[in-house]
Amino acid sequence: MNQEQKSSPTPTDTTVSESMSLGTMKPGMFGHVLGFDTVGADPDVAPDIADRLREIGFAENLEVEVLHQSPFGRDPIAVRIGSMTVALRRREANIIKVQLV
């Protein structure tokens, strides 16, 4: 476990080990939001995607869990973030880095 690196997640933090992009997670997996990484993002995602994700409820340190995935092609996914449920596509979910528990 690489605990010390957990200290200060920033929006461009990609170096944390044990972390995973939310978009690659399977239903049932959960952890804490580390940050938003727009640097390595799919060029097709909106440039203000991090703000939009924050607006709908994603924030650092919140607990996040993949609850469901679409029956067709497993995309989009429905995730619990804090106390709410949000549906989004895996491409955008990949911006969100998660520290698995």
Binding site: D44, A46, R52, I56, M84, V86, A87, L88, E92
Partner: peptide, 10 residues
């Protein structure tokens, strides 16, 4: 145009 996203609170 750009492929756009789907984001929706349930």
């Amino acid at each position: 145009g750009q492929t756009h996203t789907f984001m929706l609170e349930l």
